[in-house]
């Protein structure tokens, strides 16, 4: 066996490997971006909305993905297609079928992607049940799963939220999307569940629309063990302009210094004066905390400035 008989095949193998990689790259780069084809798909969907003529069902997975993405973006920007028209489009072009299947079988991001696109397609009961059986770990997938289920059964909001999980930072996103979908959120029922996610949703609604009618329920949420719920309740009370009383100060007594500082800054951002927060100061001064007189010190950073931030 001489060097040449070893060297030549090795060289060929290396060149083959390099060639395969280059070919893949060339195809990927040569495809360029998808903006033009997305525009064309959007135009087809617009014609469907105005003339009623369904676009032809996509033949490839990529074309189907593009149609789903165009429909999603179109629905987020224009109230063009009614739920019936979207449902019909999803059924006739097999979008719903393939997206539900991808949500069930895909990895974390594939599931989140499919659920996001499904959130604008009304589902039948069968598909809704299949979505309900999913328990994705990815927070965005959880968000869209909840959105789909609540839009499908808006009379079961409390039940759906009680049986689901969602990180607290995504609750405002969920509430905003439910508002866009015109879903009525039954705050009293959600407060009555005493469970984390329904309470966070209800507190967010109260804060967003400054619903003073629910002030007592919000005070009730201050006594719950969940730190996230208590912080959301404090946020809601700050938005409502509630008087800072013993109940609020008691709720913060279990918090650490950093968290109490965060709460005081929250109230300051909502326009409370140092005098309105005097109970905080007294409680902090009683334990010799560095946060005594914090509100007055923060407000002096805005002295001689009449603007409220």
């Amino acid at each position: 066996m001489n060097a040449l008989s070893i060297f030549l095949p090795l060289c060929l193998l290396l060149l083959l490997a390099e060639g395969v990689l280059l070919l893949w790259l060339a195809l990927r780069v040569g495809r360029g971006d998808d903006t033009d084809s997305l525009r064309q798909t959007t135009a087809r969907l617009y014609r469907y909305a105005t003339d009623g003529g369904l676009p032809p069902p996509p033949r490839t997975a990529r074309a189907r993905q593009q149609m789903a993405e165009s429909l999603f973006s179109l629905t987020r920007h224009l109230s063009l297609l009614s739920p019936t028209e979207r449902e019909r489009l999803g059924r006739r072009c097999s979008l719903t079928y393939h997206l539900v299947r991808r949500a069930e079988r895909g990895g974390a991001f594939a599931t989140a992607d499919a659920l996001q696109l499904l959130s604008v397609l009304p589902l039948s009961d069968d598909y809704a049940e299949r979505i309900a059986r999913l328990s994705p770990a990815e927070p965005l997938a959880q968000l869209y799963r909840l959105l789909i289920l609540v839009c499908h059964s808006p009379d079961r909001v409390a039940e759906i939220l009680s049986g689901s999980s969602l990180p607290a930072y995504l609750v405002p996103h969920l509430v905003a999307r439910l508002e866009e979908c015109r879903v009525e959120i039954p705050c009293r029922s959600l407060f009555a569940t005493r469970q984390s996610l329904p309470l966070l949703v209800a507190l967010r609604v109260v804060a967003r629309y400054e619903l003073a009618d629910y002030e007592e329920e919000v005070f009730g949420a201050l006594t719950l063990p969940s730190g996230e719920v208590r912080f959301a309740a404090l946020t809601a009370l700050a938005k409502l302009g509630a008087t800072v009383d013993r109940r609020i100060v008691e709720a913060t007594s279990a918090m650490t210094l950093d968290e109490r500082r965060g709460v005081m800054r929250l109230f300051l951002r909502e326009g409370y004066s140092a005098r309105a927060l005097h109970l905080f100061d007294e409680a902090e001064a009683a334990v010799g905390s560095p946060l005594a007189n914090y509100a007055a010190r923060r407000l002096s950073l805005r002295k001689r400035n009449l603007i409220k931030i």
Binding site: P225, E250, S253, A254, T256, L257, D258, V287
Partner: peptide, 15 residues
């Protein structure tokens, strides 16, 4: 780095 709560409360939790 956490500072202790103001006082013990049923709502407090260990750092």
């Amino acid at each position: 780095v956490r500072h202790a709560p103001m006082r013990h409360s049923p709502l407090s939790h260990a750092p």
